[in-house]
Amino acid sequence: MDKTLIVTNDFPPRPGGIQAFLHNIALRLDPQQVVVYASTWKRGREGAEATARFDAEQPFRVVRDRTTMLLPTPRVTRRATELLRAHGCTAVWFGAAAPLGLMAPALRAAGARRLVATTHGHEAAWAQLPASRGLLRRIGQSTDTLTYLGEYTRSRIAAAIGPEAAARMVQLTPGVDEKSFHPDSGGAEVRARLGLADRPVVVCVSRLVPRKGQDTLIQAMPRILAEVPDAVLLIVGGGPYAKELHRLAETTGVADSVRFTGAVPWEELPAHYGAGDVFAMPCRTRRGGLDVEGLGIVYLEASATGLPVVAGDSGGAPDAVLEGETGWVVPGGSAEQAAERIVALLQDPELRRRMGERGRAWVEQRWRWDLLAERLEGLLHSS
């Protein structure tokens, strides 16, 4: 079988959704046929030790560049072509099309027969700006396939890269580890530890940044508490917006009904999803469309855990919800509409059960990692 070189900045132990996306698919490829060329997570002894431990545990070869951010410079391009030749790789997967896909012509000249570049939310932003739009067009024209998350990102990227390259776009989404995220993931233990055993819990699992909408949930809490007085909002995750969110909970007068866990290790995330009765993340688009949700894998992880979801309408987030079946989509930033849907779910156990079961079944049918890895294999090794 042909070997694949994965070129990426987005790889663990660097945390994040794109990192988990790439790692989960890489783990499902033949480890003897994969080489990863990645940036260094962070400099310093602690970062180096964490990276070394992680790399040693992988079933495939991981080569780290000395820089914390790979860019398509002559040096990085030369290193990538050296790895391609040294390991006999004939396929390349760019973990993020922009900007690494600009190395595609050099790698093709070095012997790559198939070049696949994956797009996320930021490529849709590139498509809106004149300078980066031209670079994105070059990437589309020099690779064999650009993958996309959903119709929102596809339509914007397709308009930038031209009809010939757009015709070669193929959907490739993140998936869900349905064996880790499931209804019996340990939520009862988390609830007990946090003193929430008998309270209705709205859980939000995400990085704490303005786009995700944790502030909207806090602003919705007075309305929710008016109908469900013992409800609690459980905010799981860390990030730069943490101080503002704590302050907002105080000024809104709901601090006693909002719990912040801070960052949680990945292996504990399924149990934290399971601690909720409803999952909500009313994400919104910001900065004139430059800060947008690419898909929202958290909604699918919640569905796999058996929770109904309330999502925002930013970007591709609605693609992760079957409207009225696995949950609802509300306008991002609307505390009133988020509260209305959350209250409806908290007050109706049968509705929660039905939506949770439908969400779990949908994940098993459509969003499993093994199905997505097979799709990528086909793209990398098709003639």
Rank of each mutant, 00 (worst) to 15 (best):
F11G: 00
P13C: 10
R14N: 07
G17Y: 01
Q19L: 00
L22K: 00
I25L: 13
L29C: 00
Y37D: 11
T40C: 12
E46K: 14
A52F: 01
R53I: 13
E57R: 03
F60R: 00
D65W: 11
P74S: 03
R79F: 00
R79L: 04
C89M: 02
L102P: 10
M103H: 13
P105E: 07
P105Y: 11
A109E: 01
R113L: 08
R114P: 09
A117N: 06
G121M: 15
H122N: 10
A127H: 10
L129A: 09
P130R: 04
S132N: 08
L135W: 06
I139M: 06
G140H: 09
Y152P: 01
I161G: 03
A167Q: 13
V170M: 00
E178Y: 06
F181A: 04
F181N: 03
P183W: 11
G187K: 15
R193H: 13
D198N: 13
R199W: 00
V202G: 03
K212H: 04
Q214Y: 07
Q219E: 15
P222W: 06
P222L: 05
A226E: 12
P229N: 01
D230V: 00
L233G: 06
G237D: 15
G238F: 14
E250N: 06
W266V: 10
W266C: 01
Y273K: 09
V278C: 11
A280W: 05
M281I: 11
G288I: 06
G288N: 13
L290P: 02
D291S: 15
T305W: 10
V310T: 03
D313V: 08
S314K: 01
A317P: 12
A317L: 11
E325G: 07
W328Y: 14
V330S: 11
G333Y: 01
Q337T: 08
P349Y: 05
L351S: 13
L351R: 05
R352P: 04
A373S: 02
G378Q: 13
G378I: 14
S382Q: 15
